[in-house]
Amino acid sequence: MPQHVLADVGYVSAGTPGEEVFSFSRDGAGHPMPMATRPVPVRTILATIGLVLATYGLVELVVQARRVLIWAVIAVFLAVSLHPAVETLRRRVPRCRRSVATLLVFLAVAAVVGAVVALFVIPRPEGSRFAGRLPTMIRDAQPAAASR
């Protein structure tokens, strides 16, 4: 769009050659005139203030209930993830109630998680000895690798 058209409607005006700056609209003689402004309706102001306050209140509520929300998310995750195993156990064992099936599946999962932690996470004496000897083993292996 040509620059003089933009300047006439108040978008940009020419400054020094090659420079465009935001400005006012111009009258017939080329003098700047302030663009017409409408007052903002009171309803819009009140709606904006209300939305800001509601957002602030919601954020504060989430921050205050953070611990409860975390436990609720964990509970929902466990319920959804254990549901197929509980239903399978209930179908295969004719007299098994849902509460008993849930308890058995939960204990089985806890046992598996405990076994994984015991095998891989808890430090063993062998691992500590290996970690202590590792720098020496690396130093000893370097001359053999360099001679190849």
Results as ranks from 00 to 15, higher is better:
Ala75Ser: 12
Leu82Lys: 00
Leu103Gly: 05
Arg95Val: 15
Val76Arg: 04
Gly50His: 03
Ala79Ser: 08
Pro123Phe: 07
Glu87Asp: 13
Gly57Cys: 02
Val113Asn: 03
Glu126Tyr: 05
Leu89Ser: 02
Ser23Trp: 09
Leu69Ser: 09
Leu51Gly: 15
Ser13Lys: 05
Phe22Met: 07
Val116Met: 12
Leu82Tyr: 01
Thr16Trp: 04
Ala75Met: 03
Thr88Gly: 03
Pro17Glu: 15
Arg98Ala: 04
Ala111Ser: 11
Glu87Pro: 01
Pro94Phe: 11
Ala14Ile: 05
Phe106Ser: 11
Arg26Lys: 15
Arg91Asp: 05
Arg95Tyr: 08
Pro17Thr: 12
Ala47Trp: 05
Leu107Trp: 06
Phe22Thr: 07
Leu82Gln: 03
Ala14Pro: 00
Tyr11Leu: 11
Val21Asn: 10
Pro34His: 07
Gly57Met: 02
Leu46Gln: 09
Val21Met: 06
Ser99Val: 13
Gly18Trp: 07
Val100Met: 07
Pro32Lys: 09
Ser81Phe: 05
Val52Pro: 00
Ser128Ala: 15
Ala65Gly: 09
Phe24Leu: 11
Ile122Arg: 13
Met33Phe: 06
Ala29Pro: 00
Gln64Glu: 11
Glu87Trp: 02
Gly10Tyr: 00
Val116Lys: 06
Leu89Asp: 01
Ser99Met: 09
Val117Gly: 01
Arg97Ile: 06
Arg67Gln: 14
Val68Ser: 08
Val113Asp: 03
His83Ile: 01
Thr37Ile: 11
Leu53Gly: 03
Pro34Thr: 12
Gly114Ser: 15
Pro125Gln: 07
Ile70Ser: 05
Pro123Lys: 10
Ala79Gln: 05
Thr16Glu: 14
Ile74Asn: 06
Pro123Cys: 06
Pro34Phe: 03
Val93Met: 06
Ile122Glu: 09
Gly30Met: 08
Val68Ile: 08
Leu78Tyr: 04
Ala111Val: 10
Val100Ile: 14
Gly28Tyr: 14
Leu69Trp: 13
Tyr56Glu: 08
Arg98Ser: 05
Pro34Asn: 13
Val105Trp: 00
Ala54Phe: 02
Arg91Ile: 04
Ala14Lys: 12
Thr88Glu: 10
Ala47Gly: 05
Leu103Tyr: 06
Ala118Ile: 02
Leu119Gly: 10
Val121Pro: 01
Ser81Gln: 12
Ala47Pro: 01
Phe106Pro: 00
Ala115Thr: 12
Ile122Cys: 04
Glu60Trp: 03
Arg90Trp: 01
Arg38Gly: 10
Val62Ala: 14
Leu61Asn: 04
Val76Phe: 03
Leu82Cys: 04
Met33Ile: 15
Gln64Met: 12
Val86Asp: 00
Leu82Gly: 00
Glu126Thr: 09
Ala65Tyr: 14
Leu58Lys: 03
Leu53Ile: 09
Arg91Trp: 04
Ala29Thr: 14
Ala14Asn: 03
Val12Cys: 04
Leu53Met: 07
Phe77Ala: 12
Ala115Cys: 12
Val68Cys: 01
Ala118Tyr: 02
Glu60Leu: 12
Pro125Arg: 13
Ala79His: 04
Val42Trp: 06
Val113Pro: 01
Leu104Arg: 02
Leu51Val: 08
His31Ala: 15
Arg67Thr: 14
Val112Asn: 06
Arg43Phe: 08
Arg26Val: 11
Arg91Asn: 08
Phe77Asn: 03
Arg43Thr: 15
Asp27Asn: 15
Ala79Ile: 02
Phe106Val: 06
Pro34Asp: 08
Ile49Phe: 09
Thr88Lys: 10
Val109Gly: 00
Pro17Arg: 13
Val76Met: 08
Leu82His: 01
Ser128Arg: 10
